[in-house]
Amino acid sequence: MQAVHSSPHTPPQNSVSRMMLTLLLALIPGILVYIYFFGWGVVVNISLAVAVAIFSEALMLGIRHRPLKPYLLDGSAVVTAVLFALALPTLAPWWLTMAGIAFAIVIAKHLYGGLGYNPFNPAMVGYATLLIAFPKEMTAWLPAGIHEVTFIDNLRYTFLNALPEGMTYDSLTMATPLDTVKTELAQDRTMEEIPVRYSGLFGGVAGRGWEWVNLMFMLGGLILIYMKVINWRIPLAVILGLFLIATLFAIPDPDLRPSPWFHMFGGAAMLGAFFIATDPVTAAATPRGQLIYGFGIGIIIYVIRTWGGYPDGVAFAVLIMNMAVPTLDYYTRPRVFGQGKK
């Protein structure tokens, strides 16, 4: 691209593909625990999403006359696909996954200019679109635990919509802890009663299985911070925002408000904080902007979970704060060296 060599004359130290690959590796502990608790569905979803993402990416690059090799190898489409698939319920039918990821890559990413130019997190756009268009299919979660659904069963369900022998849809799926808490609280039950009524649904501090998945994503995220693929500001601000507002409401009303731990280690909180909110393209870029951006996401997650129409709010929280990014970046420009304190 550049004919004239300008300083610095140093070999490349880092690359987009290296960052993306590291990010994928950091997801592995979380994914393994995910499989352990929720079965093979997540693997099916990831594989399907990655395949469709690569196809859509290649198609759009072709239409836009962009070179295939560097952009396919940058790994960004794969990352979008994996994050999208991790947000899906384990028993998502094939067309749901395919439609969502195709929408994410084609509309949310490439129609806005491709890598580096999309204002909204593509994975979350795909997910939110599905949530609005196909609400029922988006709740097809297996309960956490060791269950009899085999890999083949899962494949058959995904592609043929065939339930395992002797099982009905309702006996197979189960509402998530976040969803259950929300519905039950709406029916005037207290946080003391709910875990008793749904004994298999809760673990130590949050939803059974979910707390471990979250813990592992947090671990992966900390590795990313250590490897300097992401910085600490956004994840910390998301967690802090969520924790503070949850504490604020839980202290006076522990019967009606789940504990901050339940929120921090429930649903997609840690995945969102470390892997989704930190998408550099769509996140705030200034240090102070990142703190506000993350804090806002934490608050909105709680607001949607508590008073909104959906059990989890990570996707909408991220998308809403994506909208605020240009303004945040503009008003939080750092003080330049040698200029007075602003």
Partner: peptide, 23 residues
């Protein structure tokens, strides 16, 4: 080899190392 430039992904690593505190 010098690799072809890719689009900026706004990762902000440049701002982290900038001694003039620019963006």
């Amino acid at each position: 080899h010098r690799q072809p430039a890719m689009p900026c992904i706004r990762c902000g690593q440049c701002a982290d190392v900038c001694p003039a505190q620019l963006l």
